[in-house]
Write a protein that binds this DNA or RNA. Structure first.
Length: 293
DNA sequence: TGTAGACCTGGCAAC
DNA sequence: TCTAACAGGTCTACT
């Protein structure tokens, strides 16, 4: 699909306490890392319902941004979206202060992974399907599946720089192209994706879930096929920016056991210990245990 | 109520 | 080059 009335531009802005690469490749996200090309990370996102190709790279404390989009989209809109996706408004210093007080282990974790932030989803439906696909799956296989879904079912956009990008399909397209979905390497999760998509298309509004209190949203998401506690918390954290969510996978289980000797009711433990910082705590705990020697 | 086993895929180790 | 064990959450059937 060609885009009319396109404009290209670039700008940069200050991003203290942020590590783009660490954030994008944290492994704890609801979306694969953006495509790396010519020293920039690029992704197609929708801003004000208009397709927008965004390219970002970090130079010290500055984030350099290039964009190609509809003339109606302003650089301010793009900046606001980027700030949301990388959670740049979150007060990381305050979190560090709470997380590390009188704690040498956490102080070392924070020092090592300084600037790591949540990599938030720009498309909530994609986030839900992506999180279901990630369950019982390795990062590399999961990444490949999501890229295949985009390429086989998504809409292709061609930008002035000749860049071809695919956008994640909407629920209607997924339901109309179920056969193609079978060849995206999602395995037995295929039926979960189709059934969940049907529910989201016919009965449950994602916007309504977004308005719910955390507990109600968690219980509602558990009703979706293929969504258990871990996936529900992933959706709430990365898709709906609910900082109190504490997704517990095998690595977080290991980290909590390793650091606190707790091996039961890990989610409750994490939420009680870290409160409104639970989501950020699990992000750092994951890095700690994955790289522990 | 709690738990064992099935579900898929593919990179990797052993042969 | 081929084969087998393995990792990773959710669901279902069974106790």
């Amino acid at each position: 699909m060609e885009i009319n009335k396109i404009k290209c531009g670039k700008f940069s802005f200050n991003v203290p306490n942020f590590d783009l690469k660490l954030t994008m490749f944290s492994g704890q996200t609801s979306q694969p890392p953006w495509k790396h090309k010519n020293d920039y990370y690029q992704e197609l996102i929708f801003i004000e319902d208009k397709p927008c190709l965004i390219k970002v790279r970090q130079k010290n404390n500055h984030l350099e941004v290039k964009y190609e989009t509809d003339t109606k989209v302003s650089p301010q809109d793009i900046k606001k979206t980027i700030k949301y996706i990388f959670d740049l408004e979150f007060n990381l210093d305050k979190f560090y202060f709470n997380f590390t007080q009188n704690d040498s282990i956490f102080s070392r974790i924070v020092e090592k992974y300084n600037g790591l932030r949540l990599f938030l989803a720009h498309n909530k439906y994609e986030c839900i399907i992506s999180s279901i696909t990630s369950a019982n799956n390795s990062i590399s296989k999961w990444t490949r599946s999501i890229l295949r879904i985009k390429e086989k079912l998504g809409r292709k956009y061609v930008f002035p720089s000749s860049e071809e990008m695919y956008y994640f399909p909407d629920p209607e397209t997924v339901l109309e192209n179920k056969d193609k979905l079978k060849y995206c390497g999602v395995g037995y999760r295929y039926k979960y994706i189709v059934e969940t998509t049907k529910i989201l298309y016919e009965n449950l509004s994602i916007d309504e879930v977004n308005k719910m209190e955390y507990d109600e949203a968690f219980e509602t998401l558990l009703e979706l096929p293929g969504v258990g506690p871990k996936v529900a918390d992933c959706i709430l954290l990365y898709g709906f920016r609910r900082y109190e969510a504490f997704p517990v996978d095998i690595w977080i289980t290991r980290a909590i056991k390793d650091l606190f000797g707790v091996s039961k009711d890990i989610r409750e433990f994490g939420q009680s210990k870290f409160g409104k910082y639970a989501g950020y705590a699990q992000l750092y705990l994951y890095q700690y245990i994955r790289h522990k020697k």
